[in-house]
Write a protein that binds this DNA or RNA. Structure first.
Lengths: 340, 340
DNA sequence: GTGAATTTCGCAAACGTTTGCGATGACGTT
DNA sequence: AACGTCATCGCAAACGTTTGCGAAATTCAC
């Protein structure tokens, strides 16, 4: 059963014609007679011929593969982005090669080498938390491989990006907290060297400012996962310096805070309101279900692919980098009070 | 900036030697003098030379790409499997090409064609719910591309498989419910034409049998998602025919039941105990956190890769299909009572 | 100094495909 | 009869790499 795969030459030999004729016949070239075309197509179907894309790619020195580099596959947000990428890529005849950096800079660099080696058509990437040097991506561009960044981006890169409007999303979240009566709102945020962290932070600040609420630095924390949120929230309750609202940088963190608060005897949302960010599957599963910000990951993936494809078919010499911003939506559930 | 990529010929030309010498120098062939090797390696580093794997794969008619076909990327379980696949593949110098069938049979067939066209080294697949005909996978094998199935498999396929011990997992879950005092245990199950559904169902039955509890058909339901579980549980409570334990086929379903039960005024686990299956991220986020069965998705991915790689390096003519069964673990949380 | 052994390298073919160009033959036109 | 015009097809090169084989050049032993 260990069969070689059938090639154009096999068809040519069986039919007693040349490989070039078979090639042309298969793509309906006008130079080929109808009978020959018919014979070729029939035999090709019978032998279950599939073109060898390796040879094809080698010939025209470009492949139909889109590379994707992400920090971690298991995050719901990233898998929804990839889902969007895969669907649109598939619809356009491209395949998707994935590589997770596992938040390791070395591995991320290594993956870019692999992408280069594989001569992918282009690369979509969300950088790892540790990445502060972007030379490896520039290297891809220098070798003619377009790069489009999504979600996790950096300001200094002058390349195509598609990001979520984190500032506005954070603003909406905090503004809603205020509108529902919260006066002392904490922010559980992530590292500031990622734009995403900075922008959400600024959105938070802006909402306070717009509503004439003074900024209280003692309510702003670096805290971006479940366990940290548990610990921090527990400590806050014990300290007696409890806020009446929390805006967390992601759903996991929000739920950590939510559960800790409940565990400490607080009622959500009566005693404290909590808002997350991402609208992952888990946000509907908590008790109460979490008010959060929808990031439209699937659409983000599709847009990234579209930008890449556009650039590939344009094939221009110089390219003006573009930044696409995706609007967020506030999803109101029961971890916040209603607007009265 | 739109640069061609550096090839072995470029190095050869610049150094005034032949391409074959460069090739041999790069892989430390003994035929090449130390000085030449040094010169080649230095220039290769300077020019940032990366071998073109397309050409390489074409030459030895086999690539270093592992294809993966799955129903849906966004399921936590599948993304953890892929994570395991990717990590081990990466460690062995392979890349991973993914393709989601979106539970569509046509697309699944199509993806196998793409895999064949891409001349991948092997394919790992979890079949779609709609797949009842496996000819397209046999076609891959006939063309010399090994296939390893995981999780969603079918009995009649005589190929390599790696599955979770669903029967035993279900048994453990239900047995635990019984040991903690439940007498009337419902099963929210999935379609029986997937082995996974049948095995979990049988595990449920076996646990009842072993504990001398009569089987009550009115407690067995086809119900495998969040909304269905909500609706069904609500109906059960209203009917007054409420069970005191539920074994659900997955976490999502379990949480749907859990929330509906709470919403109807029942206490979990005092009035009703609930066990899920998968141990996804969400199972820690519900209130109370869900008792469930750990499926070891990450390990499953790694094992699938290992089976594939073994087969690739063996390269034997005839191959005896192997089935690996992964043991599950019961994860006890607070949606069930304690053993007294 | 001769022959043999050894070191170091290049030639060319091959993987499967595409494509510019030229070749062949049939046919029609003068 | 001589020519041009088509329609149909094949040759060969190219993409980047590996590798068997042979060819130089050098070294060694006598």
């Amino acid at each position: 059963m260990k069969g070689r795969q059938v090639t154009i030459k096999d068809i040519a030999a069986e039919l007693g014609i040349s490989a070039s004729t078979v090639s042309r016949a298969l793509k309906d070239h006008p130079d080929i007679s109808v009978e020959t075309k018919k014979a070729v197509n029939e035999l090709a179907a019978k032998l279950n011929y599939k073109p060898n894309v390796l040879a094809l790619s080698l010939r025209q020195s470009k492949s139909k593969i889109i590379g994707v580099i992400i920090p971690e596959l298991i995050h719901h947000f990233f898998s929804s982005v990839i889902s969007g990428i895969d669907d649109l890529a598939y619809a356009n005849g491209y395949s998707v090669m994935i590589a997770q950096s596992n938040e390791s800079f070395e591995r991320e660099v290594n993956e870019t080498q692999v992408m280069l080696s594989s001569r992918v058509a282009g690369v979509l990437v969300s950088v790892s938390k540790k990445t502060k040097d972007f030379a490896h991506f520039q290297m891809l561009e220098d070798n003619g491989i377009p790069v489009v960044f999504f979600d996790r981006v950096s300001k200094e890169m002058k390349m195509d990006k598609v990001v979520v409007d984190d500032f506005d999303g954070a603003y909406k979240a905090v503004d809603y907290l205020i509108k529902t009566g919260c006066k002392r709102i904490a922010h559980y945020g992530t590292s500031m060297h990622l734009l995403i962290g900075k922008n959400r932070h600024n959105g938070y600040l802006h909402a306070l400012f717009k509503n004439n609420i003074p900024i209280d630095d003692s309510l702003i924390f670096k805290c971006d996962d479940y366990d940290e949120a548990w610990y921090l929230t527990e400590k806050l309750v014990k300290s007696g310096n409890m806020p009446d609202g929390i805006f967390a940088v992601n759903d996991i963190t929000a739920i950590g805070a939510l559960q800790a608060a409940k565990h400490m005897g607080l009622r959500v949302p009566e005693d404290i309101s909590i808002v997350g960010f991402t609208n992952g599957r888990i946000s509907t599963m908590s008790d109460p279900p979490l008010t959060t910000i929808e990031q439209h990951g699937y659409e983000m993936g599709q847009i990234a692919v579209r930008i890449l494809l556009n650039r590939l078919e344009k094939d221009e010499e110089e390219h003006e980098p573009e930044t696409r911003v995706i609007k967020t939506d506030l999803i109101v559930r029961d971890s916040t009070k209603k607007i009265s």
